[in-house]
Amino acid sequence: MGEILAVMVRQRLAGLGRVALLSGIVLGTALAGCGSDTSKTEGTSIAIGVVKGLKQKLLPGKTAPVATPDPEKLAAAAKSSFSGPIILAQIEKSGLLTVLGEYGRNGATRTYSTPNQQTLVLRDGLLIATRGLGDDLMSSESAAAAALVTRRQSGNVARVYRYLDGEGIERPLPMKCAITLGPSKSLDFSGSHYDTVQVDETCKSGGVSMTNTYWVTAGGTVALSRQWIGPALGHVTIQLVRP
């Protein structure tokens, strides 16, 4: 049964292969385009900024014009190839920009995967685990943070992130986090409109500090976020394409 399910998942995700971006290489000419259109909405502008940042990291010192993938076209291509929920994600340090389709759900926990089985696991929109990226986040205790973030409330919470050490032993990284509210912002992306409030979560543990930023609707949907995976991989920006 497990093998049959694995085959079904791979077949369901196979359509995403045409639109996935790995290490900044665009697969499919429909995705190439410049991100300088001044009519772009706020949501698209943020996504374009993610793509431009990736291009600068991958091509330092290059002066020749390089086509920037249009996130709207990327999202549209993904939606035409995959019928389920979709996110667009960019992992900053590794230079990975890709679309991921949902293939598993358990209550508020959703698992999104690329065709080559790199996964992001979100609970209530907060990142709780990754797989297949190297230096993965094994798990994260996020319930207390999610309760405030999804309600757009400020407060202080404890977090625990877990990673494997050099001997393959899972080690906890406990953090103390302060959640604060930022400005309101309207986001439009891939045919969806979101009225959101910015929620910042600043966490510290010894010499380690980081900030997660979420754009959250009144209903508690995290429409856009920039979340920390860990010390090695840094942040991932996650744009909701199809809920």
Rank of each mutant, 00 (worst) to 15 (best):
E3W: 09
I4H: 05
V7Y: 01
M8Y: 03
V9N: 00
Q11H: 06
G15N: 09
G17R: 01
G17M: 00
A20H: 03
L21T: 04
A32L: 07
C34R: 06
K40G: 10
I46Y: 13
A47D: 00
K55R: 10
L59Q: 06
G61R: 03
P65R: 13
A67N: 11
P69Y: 06
L74E: 04
A77S: 14
S81P: 04
S83D: 12
I86Y: 02
I87K: 00
L88R: 08
Q90Y: 13
I91F: 14
T98R: 04
Y103T: 01
R105G: 00
R110D: 05
P115A: 01
P115I: 01
D124Y: 07
L126P: 03
T130E: 04
T130H: 06
L148H: 11
L148T: 08
R152Y: 11
S154G: 12
E170F: 09
P174L: 01
A178M: 15
T180F: 13
S186K: 13
L187P: 02
V199W: 07
D200K: 15
T202N: 15
K204T: 15
T213N: 00
W215T: 05
V216G: 14
A218N: 13
A223N: 12
G230K: 08
A232D: 15
V236P: 12
T237M: 13
